[in-house]
């Protein structure tokens, strides 16, 4: 098998910089995220997960869709902004890799491909690094993900201590590995994979949830929720957005930006009616989308078990506790 010595890691990345925008896990000013290689901060290849998910490389926080000018009350010069760069996400973890698969389902399948997402996705390469340690909040295994790696990545790497095992899993991944040829050595070493200490039983949960829509547990669970968007904005799979325009002088843009189903204005309709008037309906919707609706539609869970919401929820609303509770309540129904 191919082994990339850790001493060669920087050189390996540097070789890609000319052709790609290389995104690596970085820690800067107290926040870890995928940032462009060479930007401010400390590389965090050893940290288990970035605080901010990598989804903004495919689905930016704010994305200009088109720009226009106005002259004599006529709209002129509409320019569609849909240029994507070649990007590599280097060091993505298996849970986040799975989240990209979920986003692919949303934006590319069922008869409609979102062109803005599509153009970025086509030019994206992923280098997944398997986890050798897990955080107390990690529960990807319970969500059917293997912490050692993800078959959807273009290149799969595994930390062996002094180096990384490198496996190309796609044509474009193979091309990258070719570029590293002289940096790689051959060897045989055991791949160590992390095991999650936090476990939940997802077996049958989507079906159970289908029977609990009107259950009082939603009232109970949502009582402490403060209705902020921390969980949705840190979630690697949440993908709701809003569209609006910004005008200045005789020019303007239409943009889309992240939105959160936890916000009071999210489901408010033009006449003022809100089908999810309080936080219990909003929280129920979020959890059902993660655990039931998405698996009914796409056959997989929209929760990938990364644990970000468990860490950062200001009042510790915990999806794993919810799953436990759902099992308990479903047994009573």
């Amino acid at each position: 098998m191919h082994i990339l010595a850790k001493a060669n890691l920087i050189e390996a990345i540097e070789r890609l910089v000319k052709e790609f925008k290389v995104l690596v896990p970085m820690q800067y000013d107290g926040v870890s995220r995928f940032s462009v290689w060479g930007s401010h901060g400390m590389q965090a290849f050893n940290a288990s997960n970035t605080l901010l998910p990598p989804k903004d490389s495919l689905f930016p926080r704010t994305e200009t869709l088109y720009a226009y000018q106005v002259a004599n009350q006529e709209i002129t010069g509409v320019t569609v902004r849909d240029q994507a760069e070649h990007q590599i996400i280097f060091g993505i973890r298996p849970c986040d890799m799975q989240s990209i698969h979920c986003l692919d389902d949303v934006f590319l399948t069922k008869g409609y491909a979102d062109s803005y997402y599509h153009s970025k996705r086509e030019k994206l390469l992923t280098v997944c690094i398997g986890c050798t340690k897990s955080e107390p909040t990690c529960f990807c295994e319970s969500m059917g993900i293997n912490p050692a790696g993800h078959s959807g990545a273009d290149i799969q790497m595994n930390d062996l201590g002094s180096g990384y095992r490198v496996v190309a899993q796609s044509q474009s991944g193979q091309e990258i590995v070719e570029k590293w040829k002289d940096l790689l050595s051959q060897g045989q070493e055991e791949v160590v994979a992390a095991s999650c200490t936090l476990k939940v039983d997802m077996n049958g949960v989507p079906e159970m949830l289908a029977t609990l829509f009107e259950h009082s547990l939603w009232q109970e669970v949502s009582r402490k929720c403060i209705g902020c968007g921390t969980c949705t904005y840190l979630c690697p799979t949440c993908h709701c957005f809003d569209m609006d325009i910004q005008n200045q002088g005789n020019q303007g843009t239409r943009f889309r930006c992240w939105d959160s189903c936890m916000f009071s204005d999210y489901s408010r309709m033009a006449g003022g009616h809100d089908p999810r008037p309080s936080k219990s309906e909003r929280l129920r919707n979020r959890f059902l989308h993660k655990l039931q609706f998405f698996s009914e539609r796409y056959g997989k869970s929209l929760c990938v078990g990364c644990g970000r919401c468990l860490i950062k929820c200001p009042v510790h609303v915990d999806i794993t506790l919810l799953i436990d509770q759902v099992r308990k309540e479903a047994a009573h129904v």
Binding site: L52, I226, G227, C228, G229
Partner: peptide, 16 residues
Amino acid sequence: TRQFAKCIRCYACRNI
């Protein structure tokens, strides 16, 4: 500017 560049607009500060 650096501080607010980090803001993810979750409104947790407001809601709490």
